[in-house]
Amino acid sequence: MYCVKCGKEFPDEASYCPYCGDATLTAAKHHNAADPLANYHTPTINRSEEKKPVNGSFVALIISVIGTICTIITLINTKDYRYDKDDYHQNQLMIVLAIIGLLCGIGALIIVLVCRKKYGTFNTVSMVALIIAIIAIGLSLYSIISIIPILSQSYEQLKVKQTAKELDEILRSLN
């Protein structure tokens, strides 16, 4: 016989499941023979298991929002008129923010998919987290692709400036 509550196998003559303590159907028949509903066991719902996908979904939602915010900061700063495309360090910061946004988006996507695989369903928070994670990934990739040429140009200009400074120092030392 199998327990209707925990699903484990136990001897047919047992009155109670030795694993979870739930009364078997045969014990219920003897105990409440007059009550026809006594033969049916209403499964209990473990509320702690229901909360786990929501908690994972909230974590994914928070991570995806952080990634999207980092990416939006990158996009806003690179489109601002005060943004100096020749400033190598500023370009490095923008690429780091875009990469953080990309990693957060990918991390949130993985969390949502793991929750989906583990619990077999998407809830509303998971869907919102999934959509925001995809937006974060897309915007991050766009930012990275648009900043890399600028970063390489500013690096070349930085090298030229450093070389010019070194030449100036050499010329001063000769004079």
Rank of each mutant, 00 (worst) to 15 (best):
K161T: 09
G120A: 07
Q153P: 00
K79L: 12
M94Q: 13
S173T: 13
A129Q: 12
G101P: 09
I134T: 15
K159F: 06
I132H: 14
L102D: 08
M94C: 10
E169I: 01
L103P: 00
G107V: 05
I132P: 05
I110S: 11
G138W: 04
M94H: 08
M94N: 14
Y155D: 01
L109C: 10
S152I: 11
N91H: 02
N91R: 02
I134M: 15
A136E: 11
D168L: 11
V125H: 05
Q90N: 07
V114S: 06
K85A: 03
G107M: 06
A129L: 11
R82C: 02
Y83V: 03
Q90L: 13
I135C: 11
K161F: 06
I170S: 08
A133Q: 12
I132W: 06
K118V: 08
I134V: 15
A129R: 11
L93Y: 03
E166C: 00
L93E: 08
L171N: 14
D168S: 09
I110R: 07
A133N: 11
H89Q: 11
S140R: 05
F122I: 10
L102E: 14
Y155T: 02
V114E: 11
D168G: 07
I170T: 12
P149E: 08
A98W: 03
M94V: 02
V96N: 08
D86A: 09
G101I: 09
T78P: 00
S173Y: 12
S154D: 02
M94Y: 07
V112N: 15
D87M: 06
S126H: 08
Q90I: 03
L93H: 04
T124A: 10
R116H: 15
E169Q: 08
Q157V: 02
T121F: 14
T121H: 14
Y81Q: 10
I147Q: 06
I111F: 13
V160W: 01
I145H: 01
L171W: 07
I137Y: 03
L113C: 10
V125D: 09
L141P: 00
V96P: 00
G105W: 06
Q162Y: 08
S140L: 04
I131W: 04
G107H: 05
F122P: 03
T78A: 02
R172Y: 07
I132R: 06
L171A: 12
A108S: 14
I106R: 05
I132L: 15
Y88H: 10
A98N: 06
Y81I: 10
V125E: 10
K161C: 02
Y81L: 07
L167Q: 05
I99Q: 12
S140C: 06
I100A: 13
P149S: 10
T78H: 00
Y155S: 03
I135T: 13
M127C: 05
K159N: 13
A133H: 12
T163G: 04
S173P: 02
I135H: 09
R82D: 10
A98P: 04
M94I: 02
V128Y: 03
V114I: 15
I100T: 13
R116L: 15
T124F: 05
G105K: 07
T121Y: 15
Y83I: 01
K161Y: 05
H89D: 13
I150T: 12
A98C: 06
V128A: 12
D84G: 01
